[in-house]
């Protein structure tokens, strides 16, 4: 089994059909373990039980960035090798990434509520995630705006790469802007000073969420491949009529 074989959509379908149940099972088990550990973790002396939102929030925020990285790799595959499976991977990843980003926003806002007294504070991290969410939505809008899948893929690939170059700049700018207007950071999320009793459940949750992404992504890619087959069958049917 080489990479070339994997790149063949038919091989991909049969391989993922075998792998997906195992992946789903592993994801479920790890999620249950992580949630149990998170529930058993001690309360924070300052934040109380709300600190446990961290176990959901941090993996989501991490995946929000990770998924853009996956899409950037797929974008290179689209532009350099013109591989249809790369198109499929990029298209399938966008809504999942948007969902993770949205969950990171919601959990971040819920976590901040007791600290800030409002659901939304123009905190540097949350603001960056919000901009990222907007970029995910723009990308999905771009995918939906072009009828021909391979043309849509190339346009989306360029936007993804431009986004990947810009995200660090945006992050830096927002951090700078935030310190300008609000010198002290209200909330410290994560950081190296994290206790072991928090760190281990957090790592387990991070792995569980990553597996969740892989599972969802492979399933979404299968759907997209099948959707494209339906599309080309419909096209063949249309051309047979007119001939």
């Amino acid at each position: 089994m080489t990479l070339i074989d994997l790149a063949n959509p038919t091989r991909f379908l049969s391989l993922t059909a075998r792998i997906l149940p195992w992946l789903a099972a592993a994801t479920t088990i790890l999620l249950l373990v992580g949630l149990y550990q998170a529930a058993m973790a001690p309360d924070d002396y300052q934040q109380g039980a709300t600190v446990k939102i961290m176990f959901i929030h941090v993996p989501n925020a991490w995946l929000a960035m990770f998924v853009w990285g996956v899409m950037s790799l797929a974008a290179l595959g689209t532009l350099v090798w013109r591989h249809p499976l790369a198109d499929v991977a990029a298209k399938a990843a966008a809504p999942i990434g948007a969902a993770f980003t949205f969950l990171a926003l919601v959990t971040g806002s819920l976590w901040g509520r007791p600290m800030w007294g409002t659901y939304w504070e123009w905190d540097a991290r949350l603001t960056s995630v919000l901009i990222m969410f907007l970029m995910y939505l723009g990308l999905i809008a771009l995918w939906r705006a072009v009828e021909d899948p391979s043309r849509a893929a190339r346009a989306a690939a360029i936007l993804t790469l431009v986004g990947a170059l810009n995200l660090p700049i945006i992050k830096f700018s927002v951090d700078w802007w935030n310190t300008l207007h609000q010198p002290a950071s209200v909330l410290r999320m994560g950081g190296p000073a994290l206790d072991r009793s928090f760190l281990i459940p957090l790592l387990v949750m991070a792995v569980a969420f990553s597996l969740l992404f892989v599972t969802l992504h492979l399933a979404a890619m299968r759907n997209e491949i099948l959707r494209r087959r339906v599309r080309s069958l419909q096209m063949m049917q249309a051309s047979r009529r007119s001939a």
């Binding site: 901009i131 907007l134 970029m135 939505l137 723009g138 809008a141 771009l142 705006a145 936007l159 431009v162 986004g163 810009n166 700049i169 945006i170 830096f172 700018s173 927002v174």
Partner: peptide
């Protein structure tokens, strides 16, 4: 659509 795609990039 163009505005939606480009405006986030011009935030910095």
């Amino acid at each position: 659509l163009l505005a939606v795609l480009v405006l986030p990039l011009s935030i910095p």
